[in-house]
Computed example of a mutant assay.
Amino acid sequence: MPLNLEQPKRKTGISLTPLIDVVFILLLFFMLTSSFVPWRIVDTPLAVSSAPKADAEPKGVAVLTLESNDGRVLFKNQLFVIDNASQMSDLVEQNQDKTIAIKAKEGVTLQSLMLLADQLKLLGAENISIANAFSSKETK
């Protein structure tokens, strides 16, 4: 009678250890190859040309000039601040029947421009326009 020295085969299961190793290696790869770039300011042609124009304000249009990113607005040589709701509300009420055109000075971001437009809309302005969004510096 022959001697059976083979041990009974155990049921083999799928080991998850290599799978977890591969997942961690992929995670490490994507973490090291991705770049963490901070948000950047969108460069737009919003700046008013440096040479002042001698044109008078068109009839039915109130031109606001956004002076800086901190919310200073110039209208008819009078300085307004976006955060001052009563001042801005008076400005909108005085020009309710006009189109409000917004110009931006050099260095003003698109975010600041949109913040001003949103504030004017919230205060009841119906017609708002970005006056020089598509003007180039060569155009005079």
Rank of each mutant, 00 (worst) to 15 (best):
P2I: 05
L3G: 03
L3M: 06
L5N: 08
L5E: 07
L5P: 09
E6H: 06
Q7N: 08
K9M: 05
T12L: 07
G13Y: 15
G13Q: 14
I14K: 15
S15D: 15
S15Y: 05
L16M: 13
L16P: 15
T17E: 09
T17I: 11
I20K: 07
I20M: 11
D21Q: 10
V22C: 01
V23A: 15
V23I: 15
V23E: 12
F24W: 15
F24E: 11
I25A: 11
L27H: 04
L27F: 02
L28G: 12
F29G: 14
F29A: 13
F30N: 02
M31L: 15
L32C: 13
T33C: 14
S35Y: 08
S35D: 11
F36I: 14
F36D: 07
V37L: 07
V37P: 00
P38V: 03
P38T: 04
P38S: 02
P38N: 00
P38Q: 05
W39A: 11
W39L: 10
W39D: 10
R40H: 13
I41V: 12
I41P: 01
V42L: 07
V42M: 07
T44N: 04
P45A: 06
S49F: 13
S49R: 15
A51P: 04
A51E: 09
K53R: 09
A54D: 12
A54H: 07
D55R: 02
D55I: 02
E57A: 01
P58C: 00
K59D: 03
K59M: 01
G60S: 00
G60L: 00
A62Y: 02
A62L: 05
A62I: 03
V63Q: 01
V63N: 11
S68A: 10
S68Q: 12
D70N: 12
D70Y: 07
G71P: 06
G71D: 03
G71C: 02
V73S: 03
V73M: 00
V73E: 00
F75S: 03
K76T: 06
N77E: 13
N77K: 15
Q78S: 10
L79C: 03
V81R: 14
D83P: 06
N84R: 08
N84I: 00
A85Y: 05
A85T: 09
A85P: 06
S89Q: 15
S89H: 11
S89N: 09
D90I: 10
D90A: 14
V92G: 05
V92N: 04
V92H: 08
N95Y: 12
N95H: 14
Q96T: 06
T99Q: 13
A101S: 08
I102E: 00
K103H: 07
A104M: 13
E106D: 14
G107Y: 12
T109M: 02
Q111S: 12
L113H: 01
L113E: 03
L115D: 06
L116N: 00
A117V: 03
A117D: 10
D118L: 11
Q119S: 14
Q119L: 08
L120Q: 04
L120E: 01
L120F: 09
K121L: 10
L122P: 01
L122K: 08
L123C: 10
G124I: 09
G124R: 01
A125E: 01
N127K: 15
N127Y: 09
S129I: 07
S129L: 11
I130V: 02
A131M: 05
N132S: 08
F134P: 00
F134I: 04
T139L: 13
T139Y: 06
K140N: 11
